[in-house]
């Protein structure tokens, strides 16, 4: 790791002003992706601004048909939250399957979505559930937030403060992990909204990160059952292809995981 200067922010405003005075700063959430990247000397921020101790960024609350998760809430907290397990079971499953127990104790939802790794799990949930990302500057719909592989609409000094999820009627997540990294090779989040609208979002497989599968959404809208998606395959044209799985194999996994997610959602 290259040398860096560590700052611990006490508030969101505090963090933003630290960033303003840093030469090439980075916000630090749980650090479970950023620190390994820095250890490999693939990132060299001059300053790290730690958001983890900002009280306002923590916590899970439910109000007005939505569940709001503070950006510094860890995956373990999401996975074990009673509110999430009852209102967003698919999200609890998803958070409980990120990395491993030690990673889940540190990694945060804000850090994960701000990084937008194409194999990360959360983006699929945000898109499928129609979540709203709140920052210190504005609110963004999930689909506007994720703009491509490792890219988001966030400005350099912008801080994700919370994510708000409308409570769906049904939701579930199913992923096929990469056998080495255990990141998603294909992860499918299915959600049926309170208004019966259906969204299917896929992570791990797309070259540009998370994407929706319209054909599956229409099929599920008229027939919410695993069989409805069993015959639908996504085109492998824009899918990732690497030593762990070809685009064709990932396309197959998308169908299989979609089927399993619908079955799990009940």
């Amino acid at each position: 790791m290259y040398e860096t200067t560590y700052h611990r922010a006490g508030s969101v405003a505090d963090a933003a002003s630290m960033m303003a005075s840093a030469e090439d700063g980075k916000y630090l959430g749980g650090g479970q992706t950023l620190l390994p990247t820095m250890k490999q000397r693939l990132a060299a921020p001059t300053d790290l601004i730690d958001l983890a101790k900002i009280v306002d960024l923590h916590g899970i609350s439910e109000a007005g048909g939505a569940v709001v998760i503070g950006a510094a809430t860890t995956h373990a907290e999401v996975a074990s939250s009673a509110v999430i397990n009852s209102k967003l079971p698919g999200l609890a499953t998803l958070a409980g399957g990120i990395g491993d127990p030690a990673v889940r104790h540190k990694g945060t939802i804000g850090g994960s979505i701000a990084n937008n790794d194409p194999a990360a799990d959360y983006p699929s949930a945000l898109v499928a559930l129609g979540a709203t990302v709140k920052t210190n500057k504005r609110e963004l719909a999930a689909e506007d937030f994720f703009t491509g592989m490792f890219e988001t609409a966030l400005e350099d000094d912008e801080i994700v403060t919370s994510v708000s999820f409308p409570v769906p009627a049904k939701s579930a997540y199913s992923k096929y992990p990469n056998p080495a990294s255990r990141y998603a090779m294909a992860g499918v989040f299915v959600a049926k909204g309170a208004d019966d609208s259906v969204k299917v979002a896929v992570t791990g497989a797309g070259q540009d990160g998370v994407f929706r599968v319209g054909e599956m959404e229409s099929a599920l809208s008229s027939n919410w059952s695993p069989e409805a998606v069993a015959g639908i395959s996504v085109s492998s044209d824009n899918l990732l292809s690497d030593i762990h799985g070809s685009a064709a194999y990932r396309a197959n996994l998308v169908t299989v995981m979609a089927k399993r997610a619908v079955a799990a959602a009940g």
Binding site: Y6, G31, Q32, L35, P36, K39, Q40, L48, A76, G99, D100, P101, A102, V103, H105, K106, S181
Partner: peptide, 22 residues
């Protein structure tokens, strides 16, 4: 790469990877 877990310690009562924390 934060995968092997040989470095796991408890911080404030929770298991974490001490190689992935400053």
């Amino acid at each position: 790469t934060s995968q092997c877990g040989a470095c796991v310690v408890h911080v404030d009562g929770k298991a974490v990877k001490s190689c992935t924390m400053l």
